[in-house]
C-alpha cells in the first residue's frame, strides 16, 4: 500500500521538476539571445530582462490586489453595492468584533514581550555556558515546525478529560499531581487566549535567542572590562551596559515578532477556530472572506491588519534609510 502511494506520488515531483527545468530553460535561452545584442540597446534590454519579471509579479501580486482590497472594503458582501464605511463600523462597534480587536491587541503585546524577554534571558545565560550548542538547537527547533504542527503538539498538552478519568493532557496531569483540579483549558475564558499565545512564544523564543545571542557575543571586550572595573556587576552590568549595547537588535527582534504575531492565523484556526472567545483579526478575516464569503468584511479586516503593520514597517524603513545615509 505504501509503495503504491509512493509510486502514485512520484509523477507529482516530476511535474514540479519539469516546471523548474522549463523555467530555467526559458531563462537560459533568453539570456543567450539577449546576451548577443550589442550597442545602445544592450543595457536597457538587460535592465528589462532582469527587473521585468520581479516588477510585473509585484504589481500583479501585491500592488494591484492591495488597491482592490482597499476598495472592496467599502462594498457589501457580494462586492456589488458601495456601502461606505459600514464594514469598518461593523468591525469597531459590534461586541464580538471588539473582543476580536482586544484579543489581537493582547496577542501583539504579550507574545513579542515574552518571546523577546525569554530569548534575551537565554542568550545571556547561554553566554555563560560551556556547551551551548545542544540547548540552543533544541530551543531553536520549534522555528522549523509549522504552526499547524505546533498546534497539534500543544493540543496534546492542553487536552482535557474529566478529572475522575485517566488524563491524556500533560498540563491537566501536572495540575492533578499538584493536587488541584484541572479546568477545561481551551474553554477557560479569557485565559485560553494566553494558552494559545504560549504556542507562539514557544516558536519565536528560539529566534529571539539566536539573534540576541549573536549580538551579545559581538559586544567588544573592552566595554565590558571598563564597566566591570568601574564596579558594574550583575543587574547593573546587564541593564546599563549589555542591554543598551544590543538595543537596535532588541528592537528589530521585537518588531519582527510583533508583525508575525499580527498576521498569524494558523494557531487559532487549528486550536479553537476562533471559538470560546479566542478569535483574532487574521482568522476572522479568513472566516469572513472564505467561509462566509463576505468579501467586503473580509477586505475591511485585511485593511485593519495592513494599518496595523504600517507604523512598524515605516519605522524600520526610516531606520534603514538612516543607516544607509551614514554609510
Amino acid at each position: 500500500m505504501i509503495w503504491d502511494n509512493i509510486i502514485a506520488g512520484l509523477p507529482k515531483i516530476g511535474i514540479a521538476l519539469a516546471a523548474v527545468a522549463a523555467f530555467l530553460g526559458i531563462l537560459l535561452i533568453l539570456f543567450f539571445v539577449l546576451g548577443r545584442i550589442r550597442g545602445k540597446f544592450a543595457n536597457p534590454l538587460a535592465g528589462i530582462m532582469f527587473l521585468g519579471p520581479a516588477i510585473l509579479l509585484l504589481i500583479i501580486g501585491l500592488v494591484v490586489p492591495t488597491i482592490q482590497t482597499i476598495s472592496k472594503s467599502f462594498y457589501n458582501a457580494s462586492g456589488q453595492k458601495f456601502i461606505g464605511l459600514a464594514n469598518y463600523g461593523w468591525i469597531f462597534t459590534t461586541e464580538n468584533n471588539q473582543k476580536v480587536l482586544i484579543n489581537t491587541a493582547l496577542w501583539i503585546i504579550v507574545a513579542p514581550i515574552f518571546s523577546t524577554g525569554v530569548g534575551l534571558l537565554l542568550a545571556l545565560l547561554l553566554d555563560k555556558m560551556k556547551r551551548e550548542s545542544i540547548p540552543k538547537s533544541l530551543i531553536f527547533m520549534p522555528m522549523a515546525i509549522s504552526f499547524v504542527g505546533a498546534s497539534i503538539i500543544w493540543g496534546l498538552v492542553y487536552a482535557y478529560r474529566d478529572p475522575s478519568q485517566e488524563q491524556v493532557g500533560l498540563l491537566s496531569q501536572v495540575v492533578l499531581w499538584l493536587g488541584m483540579e484541572p479546568p477545561n483549558w481551551l474553554l477557560l475564558q479569557p485565559w485560553n487566549n494566553f494558552l494559545l499565545m504560549v504556542i507562539m512564544i514557544w516558536i519565536q523564543t528560539g529566534f529571539a535567542m539566536v539573534v540576541l545571542s549573536a549580538a551579545i557575543k559581538a559586544i567588544p571586550h573592552d566595554v565590558i572590562e571598563a564597566a566591570t572595573l568601574d564596579g558594574a556587576r550583575g543587574w547593573r552590568l546587564f541593564s546599563r551596559v549589555t542591554v543598551p549595547m544590543v538595543r537596535t537588535t532588541l528592537i528589530v527582534v521585537f518588531t519582527t515578532i510583533l508583525i508575525a504575531t499580527l498576521k498569524i492565523f494558523d494557531i487559532v484556526r487549528v486550536m479553537t477556530n476562533g471559538n470560546f472567545g479566542t478569535q483574532i483579526v487574521a482568522n476572522e478575516m479568513y472566516s469572513q472572506a472564505f467561509v462566509q464569503f463576505d468579501v467586503g468584511r473580509g477586505s475591511a479586516l485585511a485593511v485593519i491588519l495592513f494599518l496595523g503593520v504600517i507604523p512598524i514597517v515605516s519605522y524600520n524603513i526610516v531606520q534603514l534609510r538612516k543607516e544607509r545615509a551614514v554609510r
Partner: peptide, 23 residues
C-alpha cells in the same frame, strides 16, 4: 514563522576572540 524587514545590525565579533562570552 518570523518576518523580517530589516537587516539585523550585528557587528562581527572581534577577531582576537575576547568577547563578553569569553570572559
Amino acid at each position: 514563522s518570523v518576518e523580517a524587514h530589516e537587516i539585523i545590525p550585528i557587528p562581527q565579533p572581534p577577531k582576537d576572540d575576547v568577547t563578553i562570552g569569553g570572559t
